[in-house]
Simulated assay, not measured.
Amino acid sequence: MYVPTPTERDPHPQAGQPWWLIIGPGFAALIGLFLLTVVYRFDGLSALQVELHMSSQALLLSGLVAYLVAAAIAFPAGLLLGARFPTSLTVAGLGLMLLGVLAVAFVPNSALLVVGRVLTGLGAGAAIGVTAALIRRLPTGRGLAAGVTGGLGVLAMVIAPFLGSLLSDALSFRLVYVVAALFVFAALVVTGVIGIVALTKKETRHTRRYEQG
Rank of each mutant, 00 (worst) to 15 (best):
G82L: 08
L99H: 04
L79Q: 15
E51F: 05
A77N: 10
R117H: 03
V101W: 00
A77T: 12
Q57F: 13
Q49S: 15
G63W: 01
R41D: 03
V50H: 10
G82D: 08
M54E: 03
A47C: 11
A111W: 11
T90G: 06
V101A: 10
L113A: 06
Q49I: 08
R41Q: 11
N109M: 09
L48E: 13
D43S: 13
A74P: 00
V104Q: 11
S62K: 15
G123T: 08
G93R: 09
G116N: 03
L112M: 08
F42I: 14
A47R: 12
G121A: 02
A124G: 06
E51V: 02
A47P: 00
Q57N: 06
L59E: 02
L96C: 15
V115T: 13
R41A: 08
T90P: 04
T87R: 14
A70S: 03
H53K: 14
L80F: 15
E51L: 14
I73S: 06
G100M: 10
S55H: 10
A105C: 04
A72C: 05
Q57C: 00
L60N: 09
V101N: 02
G78W: 05
G95T: 08
L112E: 03
A66F: 03
I128Q: 01
L59Y: 02
S110Q: 13
A66T: 04
I128C: 05
Y67I: 14
V69G: 02
G78K: 07
A127D: 06
A70W: 03
L89N: 10
L119G: 11
S62R: 15
